[in-house]
Each structure stands twice: as structure tokens, then as C-alpha cells.
Simulated assay, not measured.
Amino acid sequence: MNAKILTIGHLARETGTKVETVRFYEKSGLLPAPSRTEGNYRSYDQAHLNRLSFIRRARDLGFSLDQIRALLALSDDRSQSCASVDTIAKQHREEVERKIADLQALKAELDRVIDDCGCNIVADCRIIDTLSPRQNTPA
């Protein structure tokens, strides 16, 4: 096999991506369709590897598929200003900050519930009581 040509399995392994995910990225237009061999197998090259690595890294950082699509479009035109890239990154950072705030609030609530637990019997457990659905008593 030519060192520059990758099968879908090789591409998936090189990037830590499942084969099904590679196909999904192709169908969604994030990854361009590869050429085909005479046996009709997908034939990927270095550009596919680089693009899929970009997608994977962006996903690892929590960017949405729409954000990645926009970043890829911007990346494809290297001569333009990166102001749009900054805007996308700043929006994502705001989303991350909101999630961090939500997680900190969750942690505080868990800390409160754990601290309220007297570690006696389950029937008196404040954690179980907090998690249990509230019973509506008839009026």
C-alpha cells in the first residue's frame, strides 16, 4: 500500500476515531468524500488525516459540529482575518464558562446534601430523601 494512501480503518486508528464516525463526518460534509480504489474501497490521503485530526481535536475541546463546520470553512481560506475564528472561540468559551458555573452549583448542592447526611440508616438518609420524588399528599 502506498504510504500516502489510507484505508478508512487506518484513518480511524490514526485519529482515534471510530469508522462509523468517519462515515458520519463524510455524510455531514465535514470530511470530503475520498477517492475510491478499483475495488471500490475508500482511499484517504494526508489532507483527510489532517482534517479529521482537526475535527477530533475540536470535538475534544467541546466545539459543536456547527462551530467546527464554520472553523473548517474559515481554515480553508487562510488569507482572511481571523476575527471570525476569535468570535467562535469566544462564544465557545462563554458556553464553557456557563457549564463550569453549572457544575460548581451542582458540586455545592452535592456538598450540602452530603454534609446534611447523618450517616445513620437509609430510612433517615438526606441524600436518598433529596433524590426521591416528592409525594403529593391529598388535601
Rank of each mutant, 00 (worst) to 15 (best):
R98V: 09
P133V: 03
A105R: 15
Q91F: 02
Q91G: 02
A47W: 07
T87F: 01
T87N: 05
K90L: 11
V85I: 15
E97V: 07
E97S: 08
A70T: 12
I88K: 00
A108N: 11
I68V: 10
I127R: 00
E95G: 11
D76S: 13
C117T: 05
P133A: 02
S84P: 03
N40D: 15
F63M: 01
K90H: 08
A108G: 08
L103N: 14
R42F: 07
L103Q: 14
E109T: 12
D124I: 01
G39L: 06
D111G: 04
A47S: 13
I114D: 05
D102Q: 12
D86P: 00
R51L: 11
R78G: 09
E94W: 00
C82S: 12
K99I: 03
Q104R: 12
L72C: 08
L71F: 04
K107D: 12
I127F: 04
L74R: 00
D115M: 06
R98L: 14
L131Q: 10
L110I: 14
Q91E: 12
A123V: 10
D86N: 04
R42H: 10
K90E: 11
L52N: 09
R59N: 02
L106K: 10
D66M: 05
R69S: 13
H92A: 00
S132H: 02
G39T: 14
I128V: 15
D116M: 07
I128F: 08
S75T: 11
E109D: 13
C117K: 00
R42N: 10
D129Q: 08
H92P: 01
R59D: 01
L103C: 13
P34S: 15
T130S: 08
S35C: 14
Y41A: 04
E38K: 08
Q104A: 08
R112H: 11
Q91D: 11
D66Y: 05
R98Y: 07
A108W: 03
I128K: 09
Q104V: 07
I127Y: 03
A101R: 11
Q80R: 12
L74F: 03
Q80A: 15
A108L: 07
A73T: 07
R42T: 09
D111L: 06
T87H: 11
V85T: 15
A123Q: 11
G62H: 08
V85N: 02
D111T: 10
A89W: 04
A101E: 13
I100Q: 09
A58W: 01
I114N: 04
T87L: 04
D115G: 01
C117S: 05
D124P: 01
N40K: 14
D115W: 00
D66V: 03
Q80M: 10
R69V: 02
D45Q: 15
L61G: 07
A73F: 00
E38H: 10
D60R: 06
A123G: 03
E95V: 06
H92S: 04
L71W: 02
Y41H: 13
G62K: 04
L49M: 04
T130M: 06
E95P: 00
R112S: 13
E95S: 12
V113A: 14
R126L: 07
N50S: 13
G39N: 14
V113Q: 09
R93G: 05
R78Q: 12
R78H: 12
